[in-house]
């Protein structure tokens, strides 16, 4: 049963992470565009740092860093008169009430907390990538469009929300689509974060079962389980490709791009 649920876990993760990462990316891109220098540095720095460093090292690093960060903040807030240092040599010690989740919490709470941290990590990393794509897309919106808006007397904010944002998607979509594919392919990394996802269950259920422990003894089936996962991901990728193609066709309608022009000619 857990095996089937874990597919749902993966899908839920995607469903939560994608909009969250998009929000982070939007925030990053807007900050990078800002005219206030420190805000702009912050946005550009966020986009640049995450892009430069190898992939899964980030996932391994972020999870511990986030976990310790949260516990550190809670420790500061909840036990202000704690005498000892938090980092004692190789140990990281916070007071009992600052533990996340609490030691006496039910196991589901631990699972949920782990899942939350994973979603957050994915969102931060993919947010930086989405930020990069959106930043480029905002710059790709034709200049005359923005100049026209300004000559109509729109403020900078109005121009941004009414002219730039609606038009940038067509430029952002190829990049975002790519990112979505990468995000799909990144989901098995959940396993590394200690979540019971499909990789975990495939290893668990596929392993050799002996008659002593179960009613359904079988040999080593892990190969077949992983074959099923491979097919699952391939099918998912294919479906996404088709869906993205459709969205792209819808978005190019009426745009001043080569694609939009071609569509107009076909219709005429």
């Amino acid at each position: 049963m857990g095996f089937y649920w874990s597919f749902l876990t993966v899908l839920t993760l995607l469903a939560i992470t994608a909009p969250l990462a998009l929000t982070f990316g939007m925030g990053g891109a807007m900050a990078a565009r800002s005219r206030i220098a420190p805000v702009s540095w912050l946005g550009k720095g966020y986009i640049a740092i995450v892009r430069g460093v190898p992939d899964i090292a980030f996932f391994l690093f972020f999870v511990i860093a986030l976990d310790q960060g949260i516990e550190y903040l809670r420790h500061q807030a909840l036990c202000p008169d704690w005498p000892d240092a938090i980092r004692q040599g190789n140990d990281f010690i916070v007071c009992q009430t600052a533990k996340m989740p609490l030691n006496n919490a039910p196991p589901e709470a631990h699972d949920r907390y782990g899942f939350f941290i994973a979603v957050f990590t994915f969102a931060i990393v993919f947010g930086a990538f989405a930020g990069n794509v959106l930043f480029g897309a905002m710059k790709a919106v034709p200049k005359p469009q923005i100049e026209t808006a300004e000559s109509y007397g729109m403020t900078r904010r109005q121009t941004f929300w009414r002219i730039v944002v609606p038009q940038m998607w067509v430029y952002a979509l190829p990049g975002l689509g790519n990112l979505w594919m990468v995000l799909i392919k990144a989901t098995p990394l959940l396993f590394l974060l200690g979540i019971e996802d499909i990789v975990y269950w495939a290893r668990e259920l596929g392993a050799t079962k002996t008659p002593r422990f179960t009613d359904y003894p079988h040999a080593d089936w892990r190969m077949w389980y992983f074959l099923a996962l491979l097919v699952f991901y391939l099918a998912f990728t294919r479906v996404s490709e088709i869906a993205l193609e459709r969205i792209m066709r819808r978005l190019t309608r009426g745009q001043a791009t080569a694609g939009g022009e071609a569509q107009r000619k076909v219709a005429a």
Partner: peptide
């Protein structure tokens, strides 16, 4: 190209390992 670009490398490693393991037996 589709099979190797469309699926996670992580799963490919797992599958290959268990595939070789069962061949080895």
């Amino acid at each position: 190209i589709f099979v190797f670009r469309g699926s996670p490398l992580f799963i490919q490693f797992f599958f290959a390992y268990f595939f070789f393991l069962s061949l080895k037996s």
